[in-house]
Amino acid sequence: MDSDEVRERWAERSGEFSPEYYAYYGPDETSAALLDLLDERVGPDASVLELGCSAGRHLAHLHENGYDDLTGIDLNPDAFDVLAETYPDLDETGTFHVGAIEEFVTDLPDDAFDAVYSVETLQHVPPEDDWVFAELARIAGDLLVTVEVEGEGDDRTETDERPAVNYVDEGVPLFYRDWNAVFTDCGAIEVESASLDRDTLRAFQPAGTDSAQ
Rank of each mutant, 00 (worst) to 15 (best):
A23K: 04
T30Q: 04
G72Q: 06
E64N: 14
A23Q: 05
D28G: 11
E40S: 12
S14F: 10
L35K: 04
E16T: 11
H63W: 02
A46T: 04
P19M: 03
S31K: 04
L49C: 10
L35F: 12
I73V: 15
F17I: 07
P44A: 15
Y25C: 05
S47C: 13
D39F: 09
R57A: 08
D36G: 04
D45P: 07
D39H: 11
A32S: 12
G26T: 03
F17L: 12
S31F: 09
C53A: 14
D78I: 01
E29W: 08
G52L: 01
F17P: 01
Y67G: 02
L59V: 03
T30W: 00
L59Y: 01
P44E: 14
L49P: 00
I73Y: 02
E64I: 03
L38Y: 03
G26Q: 08
P77G: 14
P27T: 02
V48N: 02
S14Q: 13
N76G: 13
L62W: 09
D45Q: 14
E40C: 11
S54V: 02
L62E: 01
G15S: 11
D36A: 11
A32C: 07
A46N: 02
L62A: 08
S14I: 07
D74Y: 05
A55P: 07
L70Y: 14
D74W: 03
D39P: 01
Y24R: 15
E40Q: 10
L38R: 00
A33N: 07
G72V: 03
L70V: 12
L62F: 15
G56M: 02
S14N: 10
L70A: 11
E16R: 13
L62G: 01
L51T: 02
D39Y: 10
S14A: 11
R41P: 09
A46L: 04
E29H: 07
L51Y: 01
G15Q: 12
R57N: 05
